[in-house]
Amino acid sequence: MSKVKKIVKNIRVDADKCNGCRGCEIACSAFHAEPKYSSVNPARSRIRVLTNRLKDIWLPVFAGEYTPTECAGRDIYTIDGKEYEECAFCRAACPSRDMFKEPDSGLPLRCDMCEGEDEPLCVKWCLTNVLVYEEREVWVEEETEEMKQEELHVGLESLADKYGRDKLMDAVARMNAKD
């Protein structure tokens, strides 16, 4: 099977060094404003700094995938004696919270690594070097038709497991009818 080279973009977060300034939120929101830099609004930022000052918690978190449903189970982590709030480390734009959603429309936000810039804006404007950008080359297996088929199969099977084969067939039929 052939392998292809891919660039993985990575931001290292040294949260211990974060001083809680929220400069990253400001830069991100300004960069993604339309037109670029025409406005600022941390509520629209794709990075948020979770803050609990007296608990010594300053945790930059990036916006990841959108999820239509919140998790049924939650986790509360204690690390180094510090108890983090529920969902602290989660990147999802999720119905359980306001984070990573456009404040007016509620549409989900997602970090795009500042597509097109040589360095992500949050990294550039964090002068305390909490955020460090790196690119890494990896060799990954080229995705073949066979692999895609396999993935589809796994997905369908899990849905069938969850809802039963009949319901799944019904849903597919309805989708067909709509098309």
Partner: peptide, 22 residues
């Protein structure tokens, strides 16, 4: 608590100036 925009008249120029300040 606020989640509204603050607007800049000439944002790109402002950011260039801030680049120097930085």
């Amino acid at each position: 608590r606020g989640s509204k925009d603050v607007h800049l008249a000439r944002g790109a120029e402002f950011m260039e100036l801030m680049e120097e300040v930085k």
